Amino acid sequence: MTRSVRKGTKRAQTVSEIQELLARARRTNIGLMHMISLALHLGLRRKEDLMCPRDLQMWLDAPMHGESSIPLMRGAKKARPRDAGMVQSNRQDTIEAIRSALTYCQEHDFELITGSGKALKSAMNRLKALLRRAGMVGQVSFHSLRYTYALTAASEMLDCGIAPYEILVQLSESMGHGPTRAQMILEHYCQPIKIRIEGHISLP
C-alpha cells in the first residue's frame, strides 16, 4: 500500500500565527476555536476532535488524577484507541482548553460542530467549510496543528534529556501511528529540529 507523502505539504505554525488563527476562529465559529485549541494541545486529527465531546469530562479528570496523557476513544484512524500525551510545559493550558471545550459542549448538546440532522458526515462537511473560512488551507490546514504539537512536544523532551529515539517512539504512539514510525516522525513532524536528533540515533 502506498503511503501518503507529507514532506513539504504541512508545517508547524508559529506562536503569532496560532494567536491570529484562534482570533479568526473565534470570529468564525466558537466550536471551531475550541477544536483548534484541543488539536493544538493534544495533536488530534479532525475526526477525533469532532467526536470527542462525550469524552471531555474523562479527559479533564485524567490530569486531575495525575495522568500525563488522555485516553482517546472515538474517531481514531482504523479505530485504534490511544493515549494522547500532554506537553508538560503546557499542562495547565491543556487543562483549560479541555475545560473550556467541555463547558461549551454542555451548552450545545455535546457537539463542537453541528451538521444538519446531527449526522457526522454533515458535521464534517460543515467543519471543512469553516476551516476554509478561517484560512486553514494548504501548509496551515488543520493537520498543521499536529505538526505544531509534535514539534513542541519533541523540543520539550529533548530539553529534558530524553533519548532522541525514545522521543520519536513516544510521539509516534501518542499521535496514533504506533511505535514503528519513528523515521516518518523525524522526517516530517520533526523536520525543523532534525539536526538536534540526527547523529544521536540509529533507526531500524
Rank of each mutant, 00 (worst) to 15 (best):
H41N: 10
H41A: 03
H41C: 08
L42A: 02
L42C: 02
G43H: 05
G43S: 07
G43E: 03
L44I: 10
L44P: 13
L44V: 11
L44N: 11
R45P: 07
R45K: 13
R45I: 09
R46H: 01
R46Y: 03
K47E: 13
K47F: 05
K47C: 04
K47I: 13
K47D: 10
K47L: 13
K47W: 04
K47Q: 11
E48R: 05
E48S: 04
E48D: 02
D49W: 00
D49C: 11
D49T: 05
D49Y: 00
L50D: 00
L50G: 01
L50E: 03
L50H: 08
L50Y: 03
M51Q: 13
M51N: 03
M51L: 15
C52F: 00
C52H: 01
C52N: 06
C52I: 09
P53T: 04
P53H: 07
R54N: 08
R54K: 12
D55W: 09
D55A: 08
D55H: 06
D55R: 07
D55L: 07
L56A: 02
L56G: 02
L56I: 04
L56D: 01
L56H: 02
Q57G: 04
Q57E: 14
Q57P: 00
M58G: 07
M58N: 08
M58F: 07
M58P: 00
W59Y: 14
L60F: 02
L60Y: 02
L60R: 01
L60D: 00
D61A: 13
D61S: 11
D61N: 14
A62I: 09
A62K: 10
A62T: 11
A62Y: 09
P63W: 08
P63H: 06
P63Y: 06
P63A: 09
P63M: 08
P63G: 04
M64W: 11
M64S: 14
M64T: 11
M64Y: 13
H65C: 12
H65R: 15
H65L: 14
G66H: 10
G66W: 11
G66S: 09
G66P: 09
E67I: 07
E67P: 02
E67K: 13
E67T: 03
E67C: 13
E67R: 12
S68M: 12
S68E: 15
S68Q: 14
S69Q: 08
S69K: 09
S69I: 00
S69W: 08
S69P: 01
I70N: 06
P71F: 04
P71M: 02
P71I: 00
P71H: 06
P71K: 02
P71T: 02
P71Q: 06
L72E: 06
M73F: 14
M73Q: 15
M73G: 04
M73I: 15
M73H: 14
M73P: 03
R74L: 04
R74Q: 04
R74M: 03
G75A: 05
G75K: 05
A76W: 00
A76L: 00
A76D: 06
A76G: 05
A76T: 15
A76E: 09
A76I: 00
A76M: 07
K77V: 06
K77C: 09
K77M: 06
K78S: 13
K78I: 11
K78Y: 15
K78F: 15
K78N: 15
A79I: 14
A79P: 10
A79F: 14
R80T: 14
R80W: 09
R80C: 08
